[in-house]
């Protein structure tokens, strides 16, 4: 059982890194969040219920750790500049220059959103979770997930501008 847990954890780490980096907008900070969540899981594994979904548990812990760190002014001050680090690194892996530019813009747009909006977009649109799973992780009603998504999408489209969205779609197309 314990060996299974570490194996399951290793398999989930790539998704958790994607979520944490997207959430924090900072590469190193994202990895720190994942590392702290893994430590917490391994330390408190005996408290997990047998039917606990590890991925949901980890998403929730990463998000809570991130919220804790946002409360510290030093982290808050880092702001948008560090969002660009994620954009720079990820964009290097894009297939084309147009693709790079489009992806860069998406991540810059995300950086300008509120934490609440960024989280719901990451969970639903990037991680592909259902509204029910997202609601469970965020511990809010499903209706709240729907309305946050509407506002988050609206805010992101405003950040990107109508034309940018079209350009990105063409570039990704």
């Amino acid at each position: 059982m314990r060996t299974d847990l570490t194996q399951q954890l290793i398999e989930l780490i790539p998704r958790m890194r994607r979520f944490a980096c997207g959430l924090s907008g900072e590469r190193d900070r994202g990895d720190e969040l994942v590392q702290a969540a893994c430590e917490r899981l391994l330390k408190h594994q005996h408290r997990l219920q047998p039917d606990t979904r590890l991925d949901s548990w980890l998403y929730r812990v990463i998000r809570n750790l991130h919220l804790d760190s946002l409360r510290s002014a030093s982290v808050q001050d880092r702001g948008v500049e560090q969002m660009r680090q994620v954009a720079d690194v990820s964009a290097r892996n894009a297939d084309s220059l147009e693709g790079e530019m489009a992806l860069h813009e998406i991540q810059r747009g995300m950086a300008a959103l509120s934490e609440e909006h960024r989280t719901v977009l990451m969970l639903v649109c990037v991680e592909g979770l259902s509204y029910r799973e997202t609601a469970d992780i965020l511990q809010v009603p499903m209706g709240t997930v729907t309305s946050r998504l509407v506002r988050a999408r609206k805010a992101l489209i405003e950040q990107l501008g109508e034309d940018s969205v079209k350009l990105e779609l063409e570039a990704l197309g």
Binding site: C21, N93, A102, Q107, M122, V126
Partner: peptide, 9 residues
Amino acid sequence: ALSSAYAPI
């Protein structure tokens, strides 16, 4: 676009 932007990570 969102899914593609973060997929490389």
